[in-house]
Write a protein that binds this DNA or RNA. Structure first.
Lengths: 127, 127
DNA sequence: TGAGTATATGAGTATTTGTTCATATAGGGG
DNA sequence: CCCCTATATGAACAAATACTCATATACTCA
């Protein structure tokens, strides 16, 4: 029994293209995984945290100082990043030091940063 | 005159680390650009749209069919992607065909997809 | 020109998200 | 043990976001 297609908006559907797409379509878990990764990288604060942690280990307080943000805001973001295993930490007395923990995601970030820096330079050159 | 540091949360600041970070810090425009790119890639619908458009040109209606979403929802996302120049379109009569238009961003997406697919396969293997 | 079709868009809405504020937790030193 | 400091966390709130619904636009064909 054919399902009703309630979403259809036109009669002339390119059936072959649709069949191809359906066949090659991404699994839901892959889409969710990709989305989760990019969501983590989609916020300016998290970008700056990860970028700085890619250079060196830093404690929460240092990060707050560098970013000019409250300790609480930074700590919330670190918890988020840790849940995704993008950062890890170690304790030394009262101080907790964070560092990056996911080479693949850091690679994506670095690529985007390099590209954006490059584009920005070109735009400056034009002026 | 030194600025008051209202954000400070601790006395023992690692001044050297902070100086290093401040020196190497990303410009605001780079952070904004990177964030904009990753935001575009952070949504499951847009991931699937871009992925399908990386394979072949598709009209709005085909996309709606493949994604199982309304024409309106797809059209809104296409407008978003077009504003960022991640896709472009051409008209053929009433039909408007979209295709991808940013090799760098599509490269980031493909890398993340490959990685996620790989991770998923490994997880399946373990079971 | 007028009806029909594919796409675009504005307003409204429910959800998600990033921050603040207040407070809790946990380790260090007297 | 008590106080101090660094970090974590829960609740609340404002802003951003992705969708729906109704309708507008732009093109085709007769």
């Amino acid at each position: 029994m054919l399902e009703m297609n309630q979403e259809s908006c036109c009669d002339v559907i390119h059936q072959e293209a649709i069949d191809d797409c359906t066949e090659q379509d991404l699994t839901e878990s892959v889409v969710e995984g990709v989305s989760e990764t990019f969501k983590a990288l989609a916020d300016p604060t998290r970008i700056r945290i990860l970028y700085n942690l890619s250079k060196r280990e830093l404690c929460v307080c240092d990060l707050a100082e560098v970013l000019g943000m409250t300790q609480s805001a930074v700590s919330h973001q670190l918890r988020y990043l840790k849940a995704l295993r993008l950062v890890k930490n170690r304790r030394d007395g009262n101080t907790i030091y964070y560092r990056h923990d996911d080479a693949h995601t850091m690679g994506l970030l670095q690529m985007a940063i390099d590209h954006s820096s490059h584009v920005n330079e070109e735009e400056v050159d034009k002026k």
